[in-house]
């Protein structure tokens, strides 16, 4: 009898495993699908795309599309540099200062702490579209358009990231290490930089990916604020390609989209190491 149940359990385990793999593989195909379509379309001519927007088989127009792309004020290098400056800058600021703010919210006991936390959560809820009007107005009136800093510095106040970091700290921050560091005579700022940041690595990696992706793909704000060609980001350049509504070169648009997404994928793969392995908090303690 006992053997039977073990066998059944094993069988059940195998069935479950098969189910897991089937679901995972299906989801994986769904994930790759749009990238495949995009990259295939980057090799197809505009006419081919207009005739059949979705195809799984590459064609031979990659070179042609690249020529159209670069002939149309699409400068991948300039776009890449601007996008990198904005995305790396805003991601780093957002991550560092959000963690610092969250640390202040969790580790210290101060009078306005709860009020401040509530304010941060409330800011997060304000619908973005309308507030943008005031932001553009401010930038144009103060002559701050075409200034990359206007797309980088606001990241210091990223309520959603602070919220996440705070929740993460609340769940798993080992307060003992703060105590022992204080006993060793470490300053508060040093404790944050040398103890807290390393512990937060899995959280930092995930939030860095999200911040980087959203900053890299951000289109509307840069589009309104960066009107000077030398400040264009990659998505702005793709948007310009699409702007030629009477003669839209779909092949080169898809190539532009592909070029835009490639650095993101590289960045993601680098950071995803931390998602996969993770550095459990406990490991630092020992």
């Amino acid at each position: 009898m006992k053997v039977d149940t073990i066998d059944q359990k094993k069988k059940g385990g195998i069935v479950l495993k098969v189910v897991i793999y089937i679901i995972c593989i299906l989801l994986a195909i769904l994930s790759i699908f749009p990238f495949w379509i995009m990259m295939v379309n980057a090799t197809r001519s505009t006419t081919e795309i207009q005739q059949h927007a979705v195809s799984l088989i590459p064609s031979g127009f990659l070179k042609n599309n690249f020529a159209v792309l670069t002939g149309k004020s699409f400068n991948p290098l300039v776009g890449f540099m601007n996008s990198i400056i904005i995305s790396v800058g805003s991601t780093t600021l957002s991550i560092y200062f959000s963690t610092l703010t969250a640390y202040a919210l969790v580790v210290y006991d101060w009078k306005l702490r709860n009020a401040f936390f509530k304010m941060i959560v409330a800011i997060m809820m304000i619908p973005a579209q309308i507030t943008m009007i005031g932001f553009y107005q401010m930038c144009y009136k103060l002559g701050l358009t075409n200034n990359l800093l206007m797309l980088i510095l606001p990241a210091i106040a990223s309520p959603m990231t602070v919220f996440f970091m705070r929740q993460y700290l609340v769940a798993a921050f080992p307060f003992e290490i703060v105590q022992s560091a204080r006993i060793d005579g470490a300053g508060e700022f040093r404790i944050f930089n040398q103890m807290c940041l390393p512990i937060m690595k899995p959280a930092i990696a995930t939030q860095a990916i999200f911040a980087f992706v959203s900053s890299w793909n951000n289109l509307f704000t840069p589009l309104v604020l960066l009107t000077d060609k030398k400040n264009y980001t990659m998505p702005i350049m793709v948007s310009l390609l699409r702007g030629d509504i009477y003669k839209t070169e779909y092949g080169s648009i898809y190539l532009g989209l592909t070029l835009t997404v490639l650095p993101l994928i590289v960045m993601y793969l680098i950071l995803s190491r931390y998602i996969i392995e993770g550095v459990a908090m406990g490991s630092v303690k020992g």
Binding site: Y140, F220, L223, V224, L240, L241, R242, G243
Partner: peptide
């Protein structure tokens, strides 16, 4: 040059 496709040309021009 700001493309019209993403609705940014008019807000930017108006500002």
């Amino acid at each position: 040059i700001i493309a019209t496709t993403d609705g940014a040309y008019q807000p930017a021009l108006d500002q």
